[in-house]
Write a protein that binds this DNA or RNA. Structure first.
Lengths: 125, 125
DNA sequence: GCAATGACCAACAAAATTGTTAGTGTTTAA
DNA sequence: TTAAACACTAACAATTTTGTTGGTCATTGC
């Protein structure tokens, strides 16, 4: 786990306190995480639906990333009533939903430049 | 360095190809990186100015993160003419500049919820 | 009674990121 | 001539993240 007193985690805390930007990025930056949030927002709100979307993810890893997103209150688990075996649905909180349009902008930004938009510096400085 | 054939890097490539969102996040998610981008956008565009802003960062690490941001064309280095010893200025490219407002939104999002905005699920589903 | 489904978890191992140590080179001021 | 500023770098070590293995538990269909 975390070593509270490593330079690494001291630096992490330092950045968290400089600006919320850094905590925000740390919440969404784990492997699979933002894709999971986006997939849930598109309706893939069950464990097995996410597995279908992300065929390379292992069950253990998916469960772990879901749990971390839950810890940061991006999503919540709810039991689907009268299901056997127990069915669980993942629902984005308002915090998670507010994140989605930001992720979409990030996506557009990435697309724009990968599709060849010219990169330059305007020396207006 | 990178092991091209590890599950880890295969999964990374898989996500990159699913959506640009994932490459975008991987560009900005290294330790210090988004803070460096933001600081440069605020005018701290010299090596030593960044060190002043981020007192805990070591020279080696700062140089490394700047280089990676340069590799992803978020910023460019320029020599300041007639300076001795050689002065280097870091300038955001248009790609880097386009990122700044998105980082600001992420920051606001983080602030909103850290300042106590209530978290809930609207079960409108 | 045995496998299958759905949703996990702990412990460990592999890999990646981050930080450290000890250097480089030029020039100017003390 | 010695130190100090500026802007780095390579090699290594510490730490963290990611992936793997081998489980759990409850219920239904065969």
């Amino acid at each position: 786990m975390r070593k509270e007193n490593s330079t690494n985690s001291i630096n992490e805390r330092f950045l968290f306190q400089v600006c919320e930007l850094n905590s925000a990025i740390s919440i969404i930056s784990g492997r699979w995480k933002s894709q999971i949030v986006y997939s849930i927002s598109q309706g893939n709100n069950r464990f097995h639906l996410l597995q279908k979307e992300l065929p390379n993810i292992s069950e253990t890893v998916l469960a772990r990333q879901l749990k971390e997103l839950e810890t940061h209150a991006i999503l919540m688990k709810t039991k689907i009533p009268n299901m056997v075996p127990v069915g669980i649905e993942y629902i984005l909180t308002n915090k998670g939903n507010d994140l989605v349009p930001i992720l979409e902008r990030l996506c557009d930004w990435g697309k724009l430049y990968s599709e060849g938009k010219e990169i330059s510096v305007d020396s207006i400085s």
